[in-house]
Amino acid sequence: STLVRVAKSATTLGIAVEGGANTRQPLPRIVTIQATRGGSAHNCGQLKVGQVILEVNGVSMRGREHRDAARLIAEAFKTKERDHVDFLVTEFNVAL
């Protein structure tokens, strides 16, 4: 797995995620990185489509349903406590 620090360099994060507990994709997976009107993720250049998100700012995504995982990611981007979001990602769809 890889730790990717995404600086809040744009007003949006600019990713789409699918998955969560009790779905076919048990951990959130990046399905889109917005390139036109690039968001922070695009500017960062290290997140890739297909990567599975294991942790956000050290908080595990395991066992979280889709809306909960999406809410945590959104809140990590929104908070003014940090000027970045740390993603622990893996290229592989880890079995649970």
């Binding site: 990713i15 789409a16 699918e18 998955g19 009790n22 076919r24 399905v31 999406a70």
Partner: peptide
């Protein structure tokens, strides 16, 4: 386990 997995629903997609 594999059969159970196949019955799980697809996830929604959220833009962030």
């Amino acid at each position: 386990v594999r059969e159970k997995r196949l019955t799980l629903p697809p996830s929604e997609i959220t833009m962030l």
